[in-house]
Structure formats: structure tokens, C-alpha cells
Simulated assay, not measured.
Amino acid sequence: MPPSIEEHTGTRIARYRKQRGLLQQGLALRANVSKSLLSKVECGQKPASPAFVAACARALSVSTSDLLGQPYAKELRRDRMDELIQPIREGMENWDIPLDWGTAPRAVPLLRADVQRALVQRRQAEYTDMVRDLPGLIDESVQAVHTASGEEQRQAYECLAGTFRCVFTVAWNFGYVDLATVALDRLAWTAPRADEPGLAAMHAYLRAQTTMSSARYDIGMRVIDGALRDLEGQGARRPAGIKAMQGVMHLRAAVIAGRRKDQDHADARLARARALAQETGELPDYGVTWGPTNVGVHAVAIASELNEFGRAVELAEDVRIPRGWTRSRAGHHWMDLARAHTWAGHPTQALDCLQRARRAAPQQTRYHPTVRETVLALKRRERKRSADLAQYAEWIGL
């Protein structure tokens, strides 16, 4: 019998645990979590935090996507997003071999403008058009690096790095971890050839993200700290952008510390990020969202990681999303806050935050595992059927 579409992460953990022939005590020992917490997560009484999921996935020798139920194939087929992924896979097969084209590629400035548009779509979580254009942009960028020279060739490598950044985002968000890993490897190859320190730092930033899904927090922290050392004293074409990268690196380190339940370290990294943000102000660059607002939303997310849901709600009271702020980051904030409200016992506020996430970044919200888990938790706890919650659940495919 296929698993229920309303199966939550805890039931998947239980299913894989039983397939491995493990009792709860056995998995708890392997994952270094308490048996009591594991029992409550499996029956839906406690949330499965990202750190908890990563620990169980590692102990069960499965991916976090397996435990989260990603990719959500039925929903992707419904929106015809699944048919856009295969052309990207095919496009990613070539990153270093010139193509047998009978005509010259477009001028690099024209190509660069289209890649920049894709990067904006990535930040605004407008995935459909971005995904549709990516295979062609990859091919054009590959051809450009083989036909251009000098500064134009360097810019062509920047374009290629930008396409791989976009591929990583959509693959990771939709649960295609294998494709995200390929994109990360391609970015590692491309960034040094673009001769832009911020792109090398971007690779480290994303690599640290992947280590969190496998609970290798020690590696993630070393990657971040190594990249921060590399950025010190670096000359760059966009020096302000380097400060933005340093800032988001400290935020990533704070998240890693939060997942390790090391609140002192998380607070120290947040303090360093906050001081830097006060110096720079809002400063988006290298495709990241940086500034005081992002520090604030990360503080909320980290409190939630530490299962301090009441504190997360309190911290959110001081967060003001600026008009025109990056939709993907705004959407993440409302998802995190919805989760905090849910487990703090505020279902009305939680659903309101989910609606805000939907308005900010609908495609990102629809396929995010945090949203599905939050909706399922709200449904399990509702005393009276809510038409708004039922509509929302239907919208995400539950």
C-alpha cells in the first residue's frame, strides 16, 4: 500500500526505522537523540526539526529528502514543473566542452543581462520562467567561455557560475539533491575561472548548506570559517559585495550552531553579523540578501531551530520586512514564523503566516517541507474544521 499523502516526517522516520529492524531506542542511540523525543516526533506530538531530520537520516543511511517525502512528484507533475527538470539535467552534462555551433553565440553583455534576470527570478522565487530558460543559458555560457577572450571571457565564466547557482536553488528547493550536488560541483569548477572572490565564497556558502542536511556540522563550520579567512584582505571588483558575503557567512555559521544546539556560538555569530549589518545597511549582492532585516529573520529561525518557539515569536515582533525585499527570504521568514506559532499553540497566527508566505513566494511555499509539516500539524490539532486551512492544504497537495 502506498504511503498516505498526509504522512508526516515522523511517520516516515518510523517506517524507515522499522525497515532497518531498529527499535526506537536503537535509532535514538544511533542518531544521538532522546528516545522520548523520537517517540513524540514519530507520533506527531513534537516537530521534526531540520537538525533532528538530518540526524535520523544519517543514522538510517537515507537522505533527508527521503524522510521529508521530497520531491513531491504528484504536485510537480500537476504544475508541469517535473518536465522542466530533465532539460536542466541534460544541460548540466556539459560545462567544459565547446559546442559544435555553426553560428557565434550572442555577445557576452546580452548573455549577462539574461543571466542577471535569472538570478533576480531566483531571489524572487519565480521559478517557472527561470527553469525554462536555464538549459539554453548554460549552453550559451559554455560556448561563450570558449569563444571569448580577456575580460569578456571572465564575464562569461561569471555567467556560467550564475546559471549553476540558479540550478542549485531550484534543485535543492524541490528535493532533487543529486542535481543540486552536480550544480555545486560545477560551481566549484567555474568560480576560480571567473576570478571573483565572492563567487568562491558563494560556493562555500552553498556547500555548508549541504553539510547541514547530512548533519556534518563540523565540516560546514570549517568550510565557512575557511571561506571567511580567504575573504580577508581580498581585492575585489565589488568590495561592498564582499562584506555582504562575509555577513551571510556569519549567518550560516549561526544556523549551523543553532542546529548543533550551541546557543552561545549561535548568539556570537548573530552578534558579529548584526554589527556588520549596521555598518553596511541593506546590501544585496552576489545573489544574496544581506542587511539588518536578514539578521533579524535569521534570529527568528535560529530560535525555532533551538525549539524556543515562544522566543522566536517574540523576536519576530521586531522584524519589519521592507517594501520590495527579496521574496524568497520573506517567504522563508513567514514559513519559519508559522512553524513557531504552530508549536507555541497559536494556530490562527500560524495560518496567517502561511498565507503571507504564499503571497510572498507561492512556488517556494508550495513545495517547502516546512509548510507541509506545519499544515499537517495544524490539521491534527484543529478542534473545529477550518475551511481556510482545508483550502490551504488542498493548495499544497494534502
Rank of each mutant, 00 (worst) to 15 (best):
A51P: 04
D267Y: 00
R238H: 12
I302E: 02
V297I: 15
L134W: 07
T211S: 14
R311I: 06
T210N: 03
G331T: 05
D185H: 09
V167C: 13
N307R: 13
E75Q: 14
G324S: 09
C353P: 07
A73R: 14
D96T: 13
T147N: 04
M249R: 03
H346E: 11
R380N: 05
P87D: 10
Y176N: 03
A194G: 04
M245F: 07
A340L: 07
G287S: 06
P98T: 05
L99R: 13
K46D: 09
L231D: 03
T103V: 14
L179M: 14
D82C: 04
H298I: 08
P239K: 09
S39C: 09
A156P: 03
R356C: 08
T181F: 00
A161W: 10
G281M: 02
G296F: 05
H203F: 09
T289S: 15
E373M: 11
C353K: 06
V177W: 11
Y286T: 09
A273G: 03
A161F: 15
D114M: 14
Q153F: 09
G397I: 03
L315F: 11
W172F: 15
Y127W: 14
A144D: 01
P369G: 03
Q391E: 11
E93A: 12
A350F: 05
L187M: 14
V115Q: 08
L76Q: 02
H8S: 04
N307A: 12
A191L: 02
T64W: 00
R122H: 08
R383I: 05
T147P: 01
E90K: 11
G258P: 08
A361K: 07
P369F: 11
T163A: 10
R17V: 00
R269W: 11
L76V: 07
R15T: 12
V255D: 02
V53S: 05
D79H: 13
A148N: 05
A188C: 05
R78V: 12
A338Q: 08
R12H: 05
W95F: 15
T11Q: 14
Y286S: 04
W290E: 06
M81H: 01
G69T: 07
W189C: 10
R259Q: 13
L110M: 12
I85L: 13
A387H: 10
D139H: 15
G296E: 05
M249Y: 08
A390I: 00
L351Y: 06
R132E: 13
R272W: 01
A227G: 02
A275D: 13
A14F: 00
H203Q: 10
Q25E: 15
A303K: 06
I219K: 03
K35Y: 03
Q355P: 02
E314I: 12
D82N: 12
L199A: 01
F168K: 02
A208Q: 09
L160M: 09
L68C: 06
P47S: 07
G198P: 01
G175I: 08
K46T: 02
T147M: 06
W172K: 10
E75A: 14
H332F: 14
Q364K: 03
R372Q: 12
R15F: 01
D225L: 09
M245C: 06
A268Q: 11
Y72K: 07
P3N: 04
H298A: 12
R339A: 10
F168D: 08
E93S: 11
I97Y: 06
R78P: 03
R269K: 13
V120Q: 10
V115D: 07
A360Q: 13
P87F: 08
K40T: 09
K261C: 04
T326C: 15
A125H: 12
V223P: 03
M202E: 03
W95L: 13
